[in-house]
């Protein structure tokens, strides 16, 4: 059993297990803190900075991101204050300037009271949350994609922006992307993910015909769990 500790959030006592991240505890207790780059399945990255809270430290208040902050007994947090609102609004304006077309960003901006941005608008769609890169590394374990360049030129891409060699076409990046920036298409027995320049041949069921999954993915799974060679020759329905 982990030790149970008590923290104070907005004057309310909250009990939680030691070693949890603050944002998870807040979510469980229905205390709303906006977040964009957070996901249960990958390690916290703390890049969107929207989830900032104030922590009381030696009589001062310090602004910190809550997604990668491990809680300890007796800490005192504030999730709403004038300073936080102001900082979140500026962050949201910057994010709106980068991805003015992304539905999720616009929705969150409206919820935080930002209607218009004062910076020049671009429509990128990617908010640089890095979830696709993290999922590829930590959930799938192939690290087929990564970040490219630095500063304002930073973007997610396959290595050298050519075909991602190690991509197995599992679609985790497509599913985890919060703004639907990464697209995937299955057509004519080929799976395409244009952003990573990937085209993978699909394997068909030998007895009934339809596509099962990309050949490369099945090979990867087969090697990983040491299945017999002909295991993926047939689809789920035809397998005994």
């Amino acid at each position: 059993m982990t030790k149970e500790i008590t923290i104070t959030v907005d004057g309310r006592k909250v009990k939680a297990a030691e070693g949890l991240y603050l944002l998870d505890v807040l979510k469980r207790n229905n205390i709303y803190v906006p977040s964009l780059c957070h996901h249960d399945q990958v390690h916290p990255y703390g890049v969107c900075r929207i989830c900032i809270v104030e922590m009381e430290l030696n009589g001062r208040r310090k602004v910190m991101s809550s997604c990668n902050l491990k809680i300890a007994d007796g800490q005192v947090f504030h999730t709403t204050s004038e300073k936080l609102t102001k900082e979140r609004k500026i962050l949201m304006e910057l994010m709106l300037a980068r991805s003015s077309g992304a539905k999720e960003v616009i929705e969150l901006a409206q919820r935080l009271g930002v209607e218009e941005t004062r910076f020049p608008k671009e429509d990128d769609g990617c908010i640089m949350c890095g979830l696709c890169v993290k999922a590829c590394e930590q959930v799938v374990g192939v690290s087929a994609i990564g970040f490219e360049s630095r500063g304002p030129n930073r973007k997610v891409s396959a290595p050298f922006d050519v075909e991602a060699e190690r991509c197995i076409g599992c679609g985790s990046c497509v599913f985890i992307c919060p703004t639907n920036f990464i697209k995937m298409e299955d057509k004519n027995h080929v799976r395409k993910i244009p952003l990573w320049h990937v085209e993978l041949k699909m394997k068909q069921c030998k007895s009934c015909g339809p596509d099962i999954a990309p050949e490369k993915q099945l090979e990867y799974i087969r090697n990983k769990v040491k299945l017999p060679e002909n295991f993926f020759d047939t689809c789920l329905n035809c397998r005994p």
């Binding site: 249960d40 999922a135 799938v140 497509v174 599913f175 299955d186 099962i212 999954a213």
Partner: peptide, 15 residues
């Protein structure tokens, strides 16, 4: 679209 094994692990875990 069949997302099978890996994408399903990216679904949120708290029940």
């Amino acid at each position: 679209m069949d997302l099978s094994v890996y994408a399903s692990r990216c679904v949120e875990t708290p029940e």
